[in-house]
Computed example of a mutant assay.
Amino acid sequence: MNELLEQKDIRFRYKSFLITENGLQIKEKTLFSSSEYLLAYEDIGVRTFKSNKGIYGLLFSSGILVILSILLYVLKNAGEDIEDSASLFYFGLSTILLMIFLITYKRNFYLIKHGNVAAIEFLQNNPSKNEVYSFIEDLKAARNNFLLNKYGKLNDRFTYEQNYRNIVWLANNDVIDNSEFNRLKNQLDEESQQQKIGFNFSQN
């Protein structure tokens, strides 16, 4: 099991995710802040969402300036009266804009709960796509095992409604599928019916 995932990017962001017995331990560091906290398995979703965000105007402007730089260079070599530094100036400006675009560009991968809430942010393909996806699968397995052990066993001390709410919660949070939900509900119904029969028999 890949219990630890560490991520770094060119913006000096550091993230680490550690699968523990009680939840996901998360550490985050930037140049100006740091945080560390434990996220309970109840608060972890398994639905995925990818996001690619960037200031594409910077990339477009960088491309235009490169074309302009090449054009000036060609015209200069063709004998046109153009300053020697003009081509280099626009090329340098293009490079700066490209660097800003790359620094601000975000490629994130999120785990979210039912209803698209409580998102956990991962860096896409960092350190590699296989490592991220492998860690996510291990996290899902650890989360589901924990929640099944905690909420997936019918408890004789609970009322019918309490047990039913537990299995509904498991289904709504993608811990169990429809077939497992129906199996647990049928088991709950049978046990509830047996308790009623036993209660009536004792009264008689």
Rank of each mutant, 00 (worst) to 15 (best):
N2C: 07
L4M: 03
L5T: 00
D9V: 01
F12R: 12
Y14T: 09
E21V: 04
N22S: 09
G23W: 04
E28K: 12
E28C: 04
L31H: 02
S33F: 01
S33E: 04
S35L: 01
Y37K: 09
A40S: 11
D43P: 00
I44V: 12
F49V: 13
S51T: 09
K53D: 01
G54R: 11
I55S: 08
G57F: 06
G57N: 08
L58F: 14
L58K: 10
L59V: 00
I64S: 14
L68P: 07
I70R: 01
L72C: 11
L75M: 12
L75F: 12
E80T: 13
D81R: 06
E83V: 11
D84K: 10
A86Y: 08
A86Q: 05
S87D: 03
S87W: 02
L88K: 00
Y90W: 13
Y90S: 06
S94D: 07
T95Y: 08
I96K: 13
I96N: 13
L98A: 12
L98N: 07
L102E: 10
L102D: 08
Y105L: 11
K106R: 14
R107S: 15
Y110I: 07
H114I: 04
G115W: 05
N116T: 02
V117I: 14
A118G: 08
A119F: 00
I120Y: 07
I120D: 08
Q124V: 05
P127E: 09
K129F: 09
K129P: 03
N130L: 02
E131Y: 09
V132R: 02
F135D: 03
A142M: 02
R143H: 13
L147T: 05
N155W: 04
N155I: 07
R157D: 15
R157Q: 14
R157S: 14
F158A: 09
E161A: 12
Q162T: 09
Q162G: 05
Q162W: 02
R165V: 08
N166W: 08
V168S: 05
A171I: 00
D174Q: 09
V175D: 06
I176A: 08
S179G: 08
E180N: 04
F181L: 15
N182D: 15
N182Q: 15
R183C: 04
R183Q: 11
N186S: 15
N186L: 11
D189L: 14
D189R: 11
E191C: 09
S192C: 11
Q193T: 13
Q193N: 11
Q194V: 05
Q194S: 13
Q195N: 09
I197D: 10
G198A: 14
F199N: 11
S202H: 04
S202Q: 12
S202A: 13
Q203S: 10
Q203M: 03
